[in-house]
């Protein structure tokens, strides 16, 4: 049954997933088990995305399904869910750029793949990245940007992290619209990721997770 649930979610069957969630809650099943199955379903979605079978619409819609399942389950949880996290990541769209579609998908995919994500939002000043890294001791920073002005903003953010003495302890990845490996070199970041699953793969690699 739990295998079915994960597969139904991965196949984006909204009605069935919601009906089954309600049935499982009514039958008194441990709500944590439902969340666990949802995570498995999201794992399948992520794999299909990485394999080129799924694209952005499937990611966004599966996120919507997960949100609905979580909302149904939440009132029945006896204690807050403590999940073991693979690591902490600070992400944000750099100063001067207000695009967040890609940013939020990266946030979501990192989250369902076990990372604790601090999403600083859009048009984030370099100082804010520095402060958040200091506060959270996050070993990874993800810089998002859609437009060409982001080239310089990324470079300046990496320089600010360096000036604050944090650069040697962290890995920086960049991604978004006009970004590529040339921009990675220019900004002196450690890696460029072409999409959300690339961000997950890089993060897992950097924290030594499989």
């Amino acid at each position: 049954m739990s295998g079915d649930f994960a597969n139904l979610l991965a196949d984006l069957k909204e009605d069935e997933v919601l009906r089954l969630t309600e049935e499982r809650i009514e039958s008194g099943e441990d709500p944590l088990k439902i969340l666990d199955d949802s995570r498995k379903g999201m794992g399948i979605v992520g794999k299909r995305f990485a394999d080129g079978e799924y694209f952005l619409p499937e990611l966004v819609f599966s996120g919507e399904l997960l949100k609905q399942v979580t909302e149904l389950v939440k009132p029945h949880l006896k204690q807050a869910v403590e999940t073991k996290r693979l690591g902490t990541i600070v992400i944000g769209t750099v100063a001067g750029d207000i695009h967040d579609i890609g940013l939020n998908i990266v946030d979501f995919m990192l989250d369902v793949n076990g990372f604790k994500v601090h999403n600083l939002g859009v048009d984030v000043a370099k100082e804010k990245f520095v402060d958040k890294v200091k506060e959270t001791k996050a070993p990874i920073v993800g810089l998002s940007g859609f437009l060409t002005p982001a080239f310089d903003a990324m470079k300046e953010t990496v320089e600010a992290l360096d000036a604050a003495g944090l650069r040697k302890d962290i890995k920086v990845m960049i991604g978004g619209g006009q970004m590529d490996d040339e921009v990675r070199k220019y900004a002196k970041a450690d890696a460029f990721g072409k999409d959300a699953m690339a961000a997950v793969a890089l993060a897992k690699d950097w924290v030594g997770a499989k």
Binding site: A95, G96, D97, I98, H99, I101, D123, L147, T148, P149
Partner: peptide, 19 residues
């Protein structure tokens, strides 16, 4: 839509759309 000085930093070099 945001423009330099109108929702974007004054020195922004283009306008940007808000979905």
């Amino acid at each position: 839509q945001k423009l330099p000085g109108l929702g974007l930093p004054e020195d922004a070099s283009m306008y940007q759309f808000v979905e």
